[in-house]
Design a protein around this nucleic acid. Structure first.
Lengths: 217, 217
DNA sequence: TTATTATTTTAGGTTAGTCTAAAATAATTA
DNA sequence: TAATTATTTTAGACTAACCTAAAATAATAA
């Protein structure tokens, strides 16, 4: 049985490893808001326990063993998010932090029974796929709002799970599966004006890079 | 915000303080399965934070501040137990350990919304009253099965929340609100034969002291 | 290709919560 | 009430997970 801390590291390394191939000390440090020396320390421990492979001064990758744990935690996190929204009516932007704490303490028993209660859901409230019990995840085709051009119509499939971003999106009256159209896009900074429902909204590149979409008609 | 450890100490001290007036180091140590020196250490810290009052070599009592926290944790524990049984169909004997871990990580938001989901229950699955949000608990009149005599008919109102005991009771086919009659009671060891449904069961004093009852007709 | 800058690691330190062994105190028994 | 026994506390140590300051290494720019 791993500690909360171990689980956090593995989860973050998994997440960071999705784009880049190898994950650096400083990237982990920034993500976990922990100093680099502390991360360096922990990396050695994770390496000794064979959760990661590791080349000093270079970077880190999850081993099969490490990935299995990361996916287990992610599975729990996402199942919990579904529960918090469907059964407790948690507001979108609070769901993440609550799941973040619960994911480390629930048992397999709890996980299985919750899965059943929720009807074996495949996606969480942000549109992320829920890994299966034996560690399989659907690989989402990544299309970011920022990749699209004027005239495109899209539906939101996923949103980066960050509280301020979620609050912003909520204020615009948007959410998962909402449809919107791109009205303008500035070439110098990538900012856009989008139309959703009857309203126009200004969206910076920082935001549009964190909204994932699928094209519609 | 207190740590899990602090919360455990306060909860245990509250529980032990229900019969005795002042709680000893060794009683806490035994309950938490921690060495007495460790407990002695911790007592000093709890005292400095004004969660308890304390006389060296004598014992410990909760302050108002300490009791408030203890009752909050107990409230969460019991609400969680109701949830685990009603929504996740957890078996009686697993409910306690799961709640034990969850109680330390849920937020006030979670607590409130769970309370509502469950319909503001007043008792947990072992028959214990759930403290209110502002720290009030019904004082149960304590009548133990062991206090009764041949011929008495009783209904089970509460059971000590210990896994082996719960498993034993379950094997006898008994549970909360079940009715039983006392057929024999030995004076030398207090052991009994009880009749429940169509079956007779042998019950030692250790067991009968941990089954709380109310007399019927 | 050498010098500067950035990143990572090492060295040494802290805190919370635990431990065992030994000393201090209190309670019990003779 | 003195001696023995039991309980509690003190002393000293350990581990996990963090920290800051300084040294080592790698990357970048002159």
């Amino acid at each position: 049985m791993q500690t909360k801390s171990t689980e956090d590291y593995l989860k973050i390394i998994y997440g960071l490893g999705e784009d880049r191939d190898t994950v650096t000390t400083s990237a982990i440090a920034e993500e976990l808001r922990i100093s680099s020396p502390s991360v360096s320390d922990m990396i050695k421990k994770l390496y000794e326990s064979q959760y990661i492979s590791y080349t000093p001064y270079y970077g880190v990758r999850l081993t099969k063993k490490g990935e299995r744990i990361a996916l287990k935690i992610i599975r729990r996190h996402r199942l919990l998010e579904v529960f918090l929204m469907k059964f407790l009516n948690f507001p979108w932007e609070l769901v993440h932090d609550e799941a973040e704490r619960l994911e480390h303490v629930i048992s397999d028993e709890f996980e299985d029974r919750l899965d059943a209660l929720l009807g074996w859901p495949q996606y969480d409230p942000h549109g992320d796929p829920i890994p299966t019990k034996d560690g399989l995840v659907e690989k989402l085709e990544v299309l970011r709002l920022s990749d699209l051009e004027v005239g495109d119509r899209v539906s939101i499939t996923k949103v980066t799970d960050s509280r301020p971003l979620l609050e912003f999106i909520k204020r615009m009256g948007l959410g998962l599966n909402h449809t919107l159209a791109i009205k303008t896009k500035e070439s110098f900074d990538g900012s856009m004006v989008i139309r959703a429902g009857r309203k126009d909204h200004f969206v910076s590149r920082e935001v549009s890079q964190n909204i994932y979409v699928r094209k519609v008609n």
